[in-house]
Amino acid sequence: MEILIIQGSLGNPSRTAALAELSARTLAREGHRVRLFDLRVHDLPWAVPYGEEESWSRSSPSLRELIRAAAAADAFVWASPVYHNSYSGVLKCALDHLTEREFRDKPVALCGDGGRRGSEQPLEHLRTVARSLHACATSVVVASRADDFTLKDGQYVVTNQEITVRVGEMCRQLAAFAELLRGSAGAVLRSAQRAEELA
């Protein structure tokens, strides 16, 4: 499977980034081709109204890269910290540039860090976004807390074994959903057509 992980935290160090990286390693060990699109290193323009996005995509290499990667993906992981009981603005901006052509009939796994208290609310908001894009969010999500991590060499790493196990369960369910949905309703054809439009 081609799996695109969109990492939606600008923090450095970042617990959300640590979750995204753990998900990437877990999926890669299962033999999947994983692309980690880290919004800390990809400066995307603000999304513009429908009908105008093509000119923006052609002027922004990072945005063209995101759209192509999303069109080619069989499945996604969206990762976000909790900001004001919701998901991050940079992740919202990235998703606003994409359409149901990239997501229809594809699964999305949701994970994020809720700080000291922890919160699944951003993931529930993202579940609504996935539904609006005709994607299928997995039932297994990962909502971590600050004390699930340890700072090592200036970067966070997951040290709570329960979170590591949960990430594994999420990734396995994502791959299983992707296998079931891979050919559903012409999703692959639509993605190929979208990628060709942007070439």
Rank of each mutant, 00 (worst) to 15 (best):
F103R: 00
L10N: 08
N12L: 05
L63G: 08
L95F: 06
G51Y: 04
S88T: 14
V41K: 05
L95S: 10
F37N: 06
V77Y: 07
S86N: 14
R33A: 11
N12F: 01
F37V: 10
D96G: 13
D38T: 03
P81S: 06
A73Y: 01
V48Q: 08
T99S: 15
R58H: 15
R68S: 12
Y87W: 09
R104V: 00
V90F: 00
E65Q: 12
E100T: 00
D105L: 00
S14F: 02
S55E: 15
D74P: 01
N12K: 11
R35S: 11
V77I: 14
S80A: 09
L22D: 13
S57F: 03
L98D: 10
T26Q: 04
D105N: 10
D38P: 01
V34T: 11
D74W: 00
V34R: 13
Y83N: 02
A94K: 09
S80N: 05
A94D: 12
W78Q: 03
I67Y: 01
R40W: 02
R64F: 07
Y87G: 08
S9H: 07
L66K: 03
H42M: 01
V90G: 03
E102W: 09
R104H: 04
S9P: 09
S62K: 01
T26Y: 02
S60G: 06
L10S: 09
R29E: 15
W46H: 13
P61M: 09
E54F: 14
S14H: 10
F37C: 05
A72N: 09
L44V: 04
H84C: 00
R101V: 11
S88N: 04
S80C: 06
S55D: 15
F103D: 02
E21G: 01
T99M: 09
Y83W: 11
P107D: 06
E54P: 02
V82R: 03
A79T: 12
Y83P: 00
A94L: 09
E102M: 08
V41H: 05
P107M: 08
L98K: 10
L44G: 00
F76Q: 05
G8N: 11
Y83L: 03
A70S: 12
A47W: 01
E54D: 15
H84F: 03
A28R: 13
E65F: 04
A28W: 02
R35N: 09
E52N: 10
F37K: 05
T26F: 02
S86G: 06
A28N: 10
L98M: 13
L63Q: 04
E21H: 10
S59V: 05
K106R: 15
D38C: 03
G51I: 09
E30M: 12
L91M: 11
W78C: 01
A72G: 04
L27S: 12
A79M: 08
R101P: 00
N85Q: 10
R25F: 05
T16P: 12
P61S: 08
N85V: 01
W78R: 03
D38R: 02
N85H: 09
E53W: 12
F76I: 08
S55T: 14
R35D: 07
Y87I: 03
S80Y: 05
V108H: 02
Y87F: 14
R25A: 15
A70I: 06
Y50A: 14
L44A: 01
E30H: 08
E102I: 04
H97A: 06
S55I: 09
G11K: 15
P81N: 03
E100C: 00
F103C: 00
T26A: 10
E54G: 12
